[in-house]
Design a protein around this nucleic acid. Sequence first.
DNA 1: AGCTATTTTTAGATTTGTCTAAATATAATT
DNA 2: AATTATATTTAGACAAATCTAAAAATAGCT
Lengths: 217, 217
Amino acid sequence: MTRSEENYLKTIFHLGGHKGTSIATNAIAEQMETKPSSVTDMARKLAQKGLLHYKKYQGVSLTEIGKEKALSIIRKHRLWEVFLVEKLDFAWDEVHEVAEQLEHIKSEKLIDKLDELLDFPKYDPHGDPIPTKDGKFMERDKKLLSEMPISASGVCVGVKDSSAPFLKFLDKNKIALGNAIQVLEKEDFDQSLRIAMEGRELRISHQIASNLYVKIE
Amino acid sequence: MTRSEENYLKTIFHLGGHKGTSIATNAIAEQMETKPSSVTDMARKLAQKGLLHYKKYQGVSLTEIGKEKALSIIRKHRLWEVFLVEKLDFAWDEVHEVAEQLEHIKSEKLIDKLDELLDFPKYDPHGDPIPTKDGKFMERDKKLLSEMPISASGVCVGVKDSSAPFLKFLDKNKIALGNAIQVLEKEDFDQSLRIAMEGRELRISHQIASNLYVKIE
DNA sequence: AGCTATTTTTAGATTTGTCTAAATATAATT
DNA sequence: AATTATATTTAGACAAATCTAAAAATAGCT
Ligand SMILES: [Mn+2]
Ligand SMILES: [Mn+2]
Ligand SMILES: [Mn+2]
Ligand SMILES: [Mn+2]
């Protein structure tokens, strides 16, 4: 499989094409910053190879084999991200770009050994689950901070937006995965929150709260 | 720079195009398992980019910038080989293929941090020197075993042929880099050697002896 | 020096992945 | 239901990297 094909499969997976859901040509094009006509070409090719379900004008979804391939790339991406943070001291906002390259390295032994070196991590630096070798997904039972009721408490376990600006903002405000958190008050006016985190008290805008995942206890 | 361009530069470096020596189109084609006409095309392109000296029918050599780029790729290749052996328990005959892919990953920070993780190694698993960040080469003072005089002694420090079959042969016969070695006898008939290595006595064919580097003490 | 063999380059074709512009199908709105 | 807007596909082109076959230049050999 070519690098481009792999990127299409991964994108389609992330857009939800693993559950039978049909993904629109335009959505893929936008996500990949390419043109719809290019997507059509690739859809035909990947369908031909048995990796996608595709009917003209009806969008695409992943076949079983396509799903396996996508999961394998996601597994590699996330394991490399863990490696970069744990072994090479990258910050969590620096790893994605490099992992986008590393995920295409072809060597089963490499990724198995890497998994072992990292002690078989279950989650990547952004809290996203790492598929097992045989494609099993262990999605965590988590909720957006913005959806937590008042006085509920939990632990930060992930981010929805994992763009560098958001991650840097969290760093600056000492909001890290693993931190305990409790909702103290919700402001009706702008839906901002007052929260307790690791002894401190913070005010959090709705935009932030709707991009932070919390595991309820 | 594209992956293909990088591979051309690296190959030309290895064929000796760093010293003003002019490298023939055919030699490059053979080494890269491609056709001479493809080499011509690429030569024109890389010359255009200022990475090669190229005059029609006169072969190519690396410019200063071309040499820098080549060294940077060789540095990455060898650092990744060390990583695979030291951190992921790859055998020294398994690393080359994977390093051929990893050498093209683009991230200065990645390679600097990797260098640090490995404790700034000077040589790769095959005894080849790892260029420093600024392209300095530390070639060791070594000799082929086949060229050592009788009763001379030294330490195995590298292989000339680093193909998997040769490396596996060395493993099977417990000949490893770092081993002390002494030439006991040279057979005139077939130029085979009797050597002492780590307590044992071995008979070594000329073909083997002419692919093993020894550092004389 | 002249002829032959080899090396190298050119010309034209192919594959992959992309693009633009135009045509067509589907969806939304009056 | 007809019209308009949007989404998708087709047709044709392009750049990168390669190939084959033919032409041209260089090297090697009487
Ligand atoms: Mn990522
Ligand atoms: Mn991630
Ligand atoms: Mn190698
Ligand atoms: Mn090596």
